[in-house]
Every structure is written in structure tokens, then in C-alpha cells.
Amino acid sequence: MIPVFDGHNDFIQRVVAAGANGSQVWLEGDGTGHLDLPRMKAGGMIGGFFAMWVPSPNGPNDDEAIRLMQNPPFAMPLPDEIPHDRALPHAFQQAAALRALERTGTLDVVTSAAGLRQSVAEGRIAAIMHMEGAEAIRDMDALHLWHAAGLRSLGPVWSRPTAYGHGVPFAFPSSPDTGPGLTDAGRALVRECNQLRIMLDLSHLNEAGFNDIAALSDAPLVASHSCVHAICESARNLTDRQLEVIADSKGLVGLNYASSFLRPDGKRFPLEELDVMLRHLDHLLEILGEDGVALGSDFDGALMPRDLADAAALPNLLRAMEPHGYGNDLITKIASENWISLLERSWGA
């Protein structure tokens, strides 16, 4: 089985919601969601980025939002900024939940590429602590504290404003050019993340913010869970110009499995054919090359394709790549090796 390292999941929210049963949800599953240890093992997953994220009162998975997204065109307004004092306790809960999974002996919170490879070699899940939206980081001293706690990947925004920048709304059809760039605090955050070698994630960031990070950052540019705007004109997807900027930095894009970011019609219904995912991969490969394309599922955070319903179904996607013309070496790069190589370039060996 080809190993898979994944660029993004929202599983930790389910662990927190389960309370005292959180570790049991991880170890045994609970019949819901997309990911747990048994399904990761069944799908060949060796690790991934485990996101900490603070929900907005009204989000894209609410009934009214789903109705709108099933009937494009739509343009959902950005949710309000989440105050730091509300975000911080939630982020602490999620970080603590991830560390609790580590105490089961089945998962390691990895902070180096060497540690990642060691965890995989020893049969444990290699988990990267990622923060999606930096509301829980008040200042640069707090960033250093989070780094000491294991944070190694940070998206300055989710799809709403923060003190650091502006996210893109859920909108189709729409350009990602939807608002202003980074704030002064956002520019300071980029510089400090570079110094600490915290990977910066461009997914959810608007185009002006993307441009600012591209100009400021000395690290490879990364969009952990994004798709191709030329195929699906969602504000969340990356234009060819953005993809070329990432390629020039020797960066990486992880393909998002969210059906509404894959489907050319932008509708929030399950993607019916994996061929559409292969079209996105083809386009990414054409611009980024074989070393710049990976996977970023968005498990437990989005509506999955019909034939990729959860982590256990990952072999369906990998099997579809071979008759499409991808050789074993390229499939292995996309599935795991490109992420590990990117982290070596971002973090150091």
C-alpha cells in the first residue's frame, strides 16, 4: 500500500466534542466523520497536519449556507473576527486533545522532518500541530510559546478577518482578490514564523495577503488544502498566477478533496467522478512540477467525493492515478514524499 501523508484535517474538533471519550473516538472510531486511527491505517495514512480551528457562529456547514452553496452563484459574507479571548481557550483545548492522543502511544506530535520519518518507521501516526486562523496568537511572544508547545504550521487566517490579514469568502464564481492584504501585525507574523521555521499556510488567504507573504517570506510557499481556480472558479481556489508564484518558490500545493472546490459547477454536492480530481492534479503538475503537488484532504471539514468518503477510501484515489498515466514514483511523491521533502526544506532536516 502506498503511504499517504495528508496536508489538512479537522479531526481534533471531533476529539474535543467527545470530551472524556476523545481518545476512544481516535482509537476505535465512532461511526461518524472521515478520520480515525482504524480508517487511517486502512487507507495507508502515515500522518498529516492536524488543525486547530475556532468555529464561527455561522459557518459553511450550517443548513442555510449549504442551501446557498448548492445553488450557485453565491457569495457568503465573511464571518466576523473572533476575539482573542474567545479563541485562546478553544485553541488550548484542541492542542491539549492532540497531546492526549499522543499519550495513547499511537501518534507523535512531530516537530522535525527527522522526527516525522522516525515516527513513520516505528509505526506511529506523525501529526503536525497546525493552527488554521491565528486568532489565538495575541503577539509574537505568544507565537514563541505556541512554537515551544509544538506548533510548526500556521495559517494566518481562516475565511474571516484576523488581526493579521483577511480570508476569502465562500463564493462562486469569484476571484480570490476579495480584500486588503496583511496588516502590520501580519507582516511581523510572517517574519517571526520564518525565524522560527513555522510553515506558513496560504490556504484561505485572499490574493492580496498571498502576494504580501510571497514578497516577505524566505520559505517555500505552501497552500495545504486548495484546488485549481481555472477548473472551479471558487474564491478559495488558486489562480494560475498564484500557482506560478508557489512554483517559483519551490513550494507545494495539497489538493483539497472538498467537492464544492473540485466541481466545475461549484455546487456543494458530492463529486461523482474522481476524474475531476485527476484534472486538478494534472493542472497542478503542469505548473508546479512533480515535486510541488501533494494531497490535502480537509477530512472532517468538508463534503467528500462519493468515491472518497473517508480516509479508508484513499486507495480509490491512488488506484485511479495509475491508468491515468501516473507512474508509481509520481504517485508516491504526490501521496507522501513531496510533503516530507517540503518540510525538510521548510524546517531543516
Rank of each mutant, 00 (worst) to 15 (best):
R187Q: 07
D300W: 12
R306T: 15
G47W: 01
G325Y: 00
R241P: 06
L314C: 02
R241F: 05
D201Y: 02
V190M: 04
R152A: 07
P156H: 06
D212W: 05
L88R: 06
L285H: 13
V276P: 06
A311T: 05
P60Y: 10
H8F: 13
L182H: 02
G31V: 08
A171L: 11
A142Q: 10
A294Q: 10
S153M: 15
V25K: 03
L37Q: 05
A121V: 11
G186N: 05
A126R: 02
L151I: 14
A95C: 07
D80L: 15
M140W: 04
A320K: 01
I198N: 08
A223H: 06
N194G: 12
A185T: 04
H324I: 00
I12T: 12
R279W: 02
T106V: 13
K267W: 03
G150E: 09
S217E: 11
A113W: 05
M40A: 15
G301K: 06
H229L: 05
L200E: 01
G29N: 11
S226D: 11
G292R: 04
S174V: 03
M304R: 06
P180F: 01
N58V: 09
R39M: 13
H90T: 13
Q195E: 12
P323N: 03
Q70L: 09
I334Q: 03
Q13G: 15
G115T: 10
N211K: 11
L252Y: 05
P38A: 12
M69L: 08
H324L: 00
A136L: 04
G48A: 05
A97F: 02
Q242M: 14
R160A: 14
G123F: 15
M131G: 09
G43K: 01
K250P: 00
K41S: 13
S260K: 01
G105K: 05
H90R: 12
S174A: 15
M321N: 00
S336G: 07
G301E: 08
I287L: 15
L202N: 07
I198S: 11
S249D: 05
D10G: 13
W339F: 10
P83A: 15
A65M: 11
A247F: 05
H204T: 10
P60D: 13
L116G: 01
M40Y: 13
D10T: 14
F92E: 15
M199C: 09
V157T: 14
G254T: 08
Q195P: 00
N316G: 10
T106C: 10
A18T: 11
T332Q: 06
G179I: 01
T162C: 04
M304P: 08
L101E: 07
P79K: 13
A313N: 03
I82Y: 10
D329P: 00
I340E: 04
H34A: 04
L196I: 09
G29K: 06
P315G: 09
D36S: 11
